[in-house]
Design a protein around this nucleic acid. Sequence first.
DNA 1: AATGAATGAGAATTCATTCAT
DNA 2: GATGAATGAATTCTCATTCAT
Lengths: 242, 242, 242, 242
Amino acid sequence: MKKKSPSTVPRPFDATVVKSQVTDVALVQRRREQIVAAAVELFSVQGFYRTTIQEIARKAGVSTGLIYQYAETKEDVLLLALMFVMERFRRELESSRDGTEPLSRLYAALDTYCRVVDRHRDAAVLAYRSTMSLPREYREYIKQAELATNELMAARIRACIEAGLFRDANVELLTYRLVLHAHAWSLKYWRLSQFATIDEYVDEGFDFFVHALATRKGKIQYGRFLASRGKPAPEPAATATG
Amino acid sequence: MKKKSPSTVPRPFDATVVKSQVTDVALVQRRREQIVAAAVELFSVQGFYRTTIQEIARKAGVSTGLIYQYAETKEDVLLLALMFVMERFRRELESSRDGTEPLSRLYAALDTYCRVVDRHRDAAVLAYRSTMSLPREYREYIKQAELATNELMAARIRACIEAGLFRDANVELLTYRLVLHAHAWSLKYWRLSQFATIDEYVDEGFDFFVHALATRKGKIQYGRFLASRGKPAPEPAATATG
Amino acid sequence: MKKKSPSTVPRPFDATVVKSQVTDVALVQRRREQIVAAAVELFSVQGFYRTTIQEIARKAGVSTGLIYQYAETKEDVLLLALMFVMERFRRELESSRDGTEPLSRLYAALDTYCRVVDRHRDAAVLAYRSTMSLPREYREYIKQAELATNELMAARIRACIEAGLFRDANVELLTYRLVLHAHAWSLKYWRLSQFATIDEYVDEGFDFFVHALATRKGKIQYGRFLASRGKPAPEPAATATG
Amino acid sequence: MKKKSPSTVPRPFDATVVKSQVTDVALVQRRREQIVAAAVELFSVQGFYRTTIQEIARKAGVSTGLIYQYAETKEDVLLLALMFVMERFRRELESSRDGTEPLSRLYAALDTYCRVVDRHRDAAVLAYRSTMSLPREYREYIKQAELATNELMAARIRACIEAGLFRDANVELLTYRLVLHAHAWSLKYWRLSQFATIDEYVDEGFDFFVHALATRKGKIQYGRFLASRGKPAPEPAATATG
DNA sequence: AATGAATGAGAATTCATTCAT
DNA sequence: GATGAATGAATTCTCATTCAT
């Protein structure tokens, strides 16, 4: 899923941590995509343990034996599936449209994250449910991948603080606040979707976040941001503080 | 765990939805406690599928056959275990010390919730990981139980709004915000615990929440609240808005 | 197969080295006999790897699962089978009729050994073929059992030397000479049986052994021994030396 | 390994009984040597069933597909391996230095045999362990090869008898006695090597054999033989008969 | 001729569930 | 009511063999 790094330390999303008996790199890539696509779908719907290798093979249109040429154990397939899911999240997040204004850039990140989660709700839940099914050592890869993804969000929060839009606070905790806002959409979709569309959910979350953190300067900027989106401008709470 | 309800609609935490071959109510209660205690521990550590009925029996000090006198399937045991966990959460939450000032009461609820989660981190994660292992019909029970518990939190948020301390907002979404703040402590403990103690985590979360929602009146009240706890009073953000 | 020894060091033929999930000692004994009887027959005819647990179960008249209640792995079943075979050899050897004259006693031992091997030729070959299929640690048990059995033979050789009937020599090597004489009957039965009956094979082997080792006194005694069996007395070779 | 015989009855060591898809005789010879060398080593160490065709291919530096161009089944590879082992034994035995004195010639044969076995202990054991893994029809080839090899030993025993050095006896049984003496060194190496070096083992075996069979003339000759080797001349037992 | 990816039948092992005692 | 031995369907993983390139 990534070209082999010359470094010997496996990086997040580096699928080479799973050994393959097949040597042709391009083929490995292609076959694993095939297998993982089937696996993600089945794992997401049925869970890891209720899904058999036979089912994955059938859905992927290959033989059971073939799967074991590209992964050593069923847990390996899970790891590849989780890596694939997280890699997709990170890639889509990375490509989120990039303005220059810190507040818009943060909004864009949250918006993208929530929409990716919304589009792949099953897959997002999968990560929560199945990490425990991995061998302990594999879980570290997943954690590293999570941290790497979080960093994309953290950088934008930091930019807001540095621009004097947000008061100083623990960026790590703030990051998890936003990340979990996105995740929660999949984890508690059955309930949250009764009260908000994904659009509203994103806006509400961002609004809440800004209200809690914005400096005076930040609030002004937020007003402009809302106006630029054709929104009713300064929110009640903002005025309540004035 | 509750006397049988005459109604045919099972209520949250009503363990009678799981059928038992044994008729003696008190005995059923006692035996199930024994079984569930073992199950919760094993499920929490190993997950549902990695845990066998034989193991549960051994740890509970009973025979495998006995378990099937008090539950019809392994999934039943999981349901009982999850109900037990959620019931414990609800009970502890219900008993959280009850002042009269709405802000303190809300703080107390969040504080209690976070501490229960902290004390039973494995069990808290269990609910996230294992719900999918339940038959679809059983999941409804769990959702109902979750909603019932959430209501305890929702009521206190509502009180703050009604007292004019918080601006008006969607209480359901706000509730999940606080609930997930508590849950996140177990879900992401490996990371969050690097940046905060449980004490700090609770305070930071509450502070964030109040900042985002408090009216002018609410802010004043919050200042008093902090003072009463011997805290440096108005937080930076509060002053930033002044 | 033996009552549990109070000692913690497992002794040869001590079947308790194989763990059983069933606790009832008598039942374990009975079931294992059932399983091992089937296993020995199948292993002997088809070899270890060509025999499946399913086949053993079917022939033993039990379910496949049951076998795994009494042995942890297929290799365990092999160990039990080999132990059973060696134990039977040792038991039959131990009970070989016991005269007082050293030479007759040695003859009786060789005779018994060869006849046991003859009666269970397949089983005897099994020990040679299948020891390598055992985990390395298990092979030690088999070696110990072999040594324990050999000792029965060694003692009788030693008695002949002490009685001045045999010249002094390395008893260990001599023991293997006789033991292999017996084993060879099963290993090379296809050929040896073309040239001798089991009766002739035993006599020829003993005669050869005595000729190679007997002192003058030993030869006289051997003549008496042959006479007592109604044999033509002093053999050609004996006279050839006179 | 031999030119094809016009006869339809395959002769021992005739590798053409195994069909090859490749027609170039020299190439078949070369490739099979490559494959068999790897196979013998792996079979010897791990046994037939624990060794995979893939492993053999890897060790031989060829592809798995190639092996199936030179052998039709895995059993074919085993047959080739066993033939190779026995052929090597026979060849080395055949080339054992050839004096004129019958006793020395017999000694040379035993000595050579034991040393070949010692040098290739694993391979020697392989023949015992794996013959059963062959299809019934193939076992005949192995038996024929064994007989052909034995004949080299038998001829020398016969020479001793014809020279009046040994008393008359069943040459077939005597041959197996010597052959098994050599084989035992590999079969029971773990024990025998505790009591003798290979040098001592050969001498002890020959001495035992001569003592059991030598006529008066043979004993004199044996004394000379020992002297020629710088040994203490007539052994105790020899004098005991004088 | 050589390669090595693909196949799929087969085997060991597990474990929820039953049931005779 | 309690026990725990027995069952056998289900699942993961292996590997001899084939075949397109």
